[in-house]
Amino acid sequence: MKATESWRPSASLETLRARAGLLTGVREFFQRRGVMEVETPVCSRFGVTDPAIESFTTRYAGPAAPPGRTLYLHTSPEFPMKRLLAAGAGPIYQICKVFRGGELGAKHNPEFTLLEWYRPGFDHHRLMDEVAELVNSLMPHQLEVEKLTYAEVFRQALQLDPHTATLAELRRCAREVPIPGAAELELVQADAWLDLLLTHVIEPQLGRARMTFLYEYPASQAALARIIPSSPPLAERFELYLAGVEIANGFNELTDAQEQRNRFEQENSERSEQSLAQIDMDLHLLAALEAGLPACAGVALGIDRLLMQITQKACIEEVLSFGFERA
């Protein structure tokens, strides 16, 4: 693209007005409910260990770090917000730019806007209700709300139990659907096959003219959610879908410091297996959990994708003032 073209915004001014209106609507919603807006650092000395998330890094040199120090750009404001909760902040929300490497497409931009909020005393079901209330207060039309478990959607769409299916069964299922190319795909983890089936077969059906919440994820996909030690163990995690697109991800938050440390270590060992760089686990978060994180539920919601739904845009750059190629 020539600079004589690419200086122009990738979103229309009308869409940018809708963005401003959306942000105002979010702030009013939380002000009415007594949830405090906060800001936390974009750059941190600690990163995210999740092997599926790639952090940008930058360098600082100067006072306090004469030889220079590597800093991670946050991929979500989760860790410092939990530190605020442990310090007694009460219900809080944040609207901020976050950064993820390797993600660019019609629904991805390497920097994007997250709305993240935490509710001490809520469980994930009560938080799902609040997510639905927020989204309905922002959408041009009221949407019905549907809650389905991860197991239910796999059973309905594929006659498959996602919690017990073996690698061979998942591979066969993907071939039989069929997902073109599934036969040659080399995915060594059951979760990667579940991601394949979810994104290619199930997601497009979710949130059609309604809001669909998926919940009760496999324990292996818990991320930072609590795990109920049932059989099979289930993660108290949820996702919101609108028109086939993932909009939000929430947890009944893990508060156990030791369990959190184990998960960081587990993720770093998965990183070694996949030849990915080791990430310094967030010691501040672990110390805050030791000090005591109140029982709470939290959720991250993609503002750009919600705006795509409100303004009926198919491509994320159409809701960004300047998409990646114009940044």
């Binding site: 599926a52 993600e103 497409g105 019609a106 991805h108 979760d191 990667a192 991601d195 994104t199 290619h200």
Partner: peptide, 14 residues
């Protein structure tokens, strides 16, 4: 070429 990736999970090119 469509980039497909769950927020927390495996990325694909469809």
């Amino acid at each position: 070429n469509e980039f497909v990736k769950p927020g927390k999970g495996q990325a694909f090119n469809r």
